[in-house]
Design a protein around this nucleic acid. Structure first.
Lengths: 180, 180
DNA sequence: TATATCATGTAATGCGTTACATGATTTA
DNA sequence: TAAATCATGTAACGCATTACATGATATA
């Protein structure tokens, strides 16, 4: 039994929470929409679903009597708890540096699973970490006297990307507040 | 013998091209600078170096007579050729969606390895792909009549990130042209 | 002399990728 | 009836993560 559930598995969990889905449904979601940059390969999805079921986080039942069988998965209570736990984790520096995509994925589920305050709490935590990290990057860049132009450009892009994300958190918070 | 060299291994290749480096040097680079979001774990670096050496892309020699031995690696001609091949690959849609970080890493090496025109060619190819992709994302967003607010916000962030990257390619090209 | 740093690695594990495999049903 | 799509999976492989292990040298 693995300790850490992968980002990919959390994506499955979050999507299944929204509605019962089969492995094939998930493949289509991942190949058709630009939302998910996840793998749409059966070699990724079916084993992941099996692991989640073994852990008791989802449960599948066969639908479509007699025809081509569709195994449709639903979240179990434990699965919902696990999803909530993931969403409630504080945003860390490490998330910012190594898992930006996972952060956006998390945000995509917060509102529905945690409610408005949950989504706002997440955005606030994200903005807070960005508030620490961006000045550090700027300081780093300033402290480098002779850095190759390409390296400088790469760091500048990083800073601007994080600044964009920070502005986005504010807009997103406004949008969340105005939700019905 | 694996077919595709991983991003991580290319990062090692590109860094070693700039100067001879040991495994420990690479660990420090990856843990200290915000440039590389690569893993600084020995379990990633040392086996990767071994694979690259087995493939004949780098070669290590022990330095520091008698003291703690440092295995310092240099690029072989075949390693340089492999690096160039990687850098010269055209930028694809798939790179944009799944490997943005790898693109920036590639840019970091182009100027030194391929020269000014090489770097400009890369930036041009990147901008071109962005020119195709960004309007598609916008169209996707417009075509979704009823999309959850969080999904809409996520796609908007994606569009803005790509737009930022596109502006950056132009600035980067200007900077590259002005290099001595 | 104890701790931190330098410096190298291995072993177990998990998981994603690629490729392959199967068979039913729908569309051209 | 041929091809595309629906729908599920497995097997081999590679590689990154985590944790462990070792020993020398420099610093407090």
């Amino acid at each position: 039994m693995s300790l850490r559930t992968s980002t990919f598995s959390y994506a499955l969990l979050g999507l299944i929470e929204q509605q019962p889905l089969s492995g094939y449904d998930l493949r289509k979601l991942f190949s058709a929409t630009p939302l998910a940059t996840m793998s749409d390969s059966p070699g990724a999805i079916y084993p992941a679903l099996k692991r989640l079921e073994r852990k008791g986080l989802i449960s599948g039942r066969i639908e479509g009597a007699g025809l081509r069988p569709r195994r449709v998965f639903r979240l179990t209570p434990r699965g919902l708890a696990e999803l909530k736990k993931w969403l409630l984790q504080p945003v860390t520096r490490d998330d910012l540096v190594h898992r930006t995509d996972e952060l956006i994925l998390r945000f995509g589920f917060t509102s529905r699973v945690l409610g408005k305050e949950g989504a706002l709490g997440f955005l606030h935590g994200l903005e807070r970490e960005l508030g620490f990290y961006i000045p550090e990057l700027k300081r780093f860049l300033g402290a480098q006297p002779r850095m190759p132009a390409s390296g400088r450009l790469a760091v500048e892009l990083g800073i601007q990307s994080y600044a964009l994300l920070r502005r986005w958190t504010k807009r997103a918070a406004t949008a969340v507040k105005q939700e019905s």
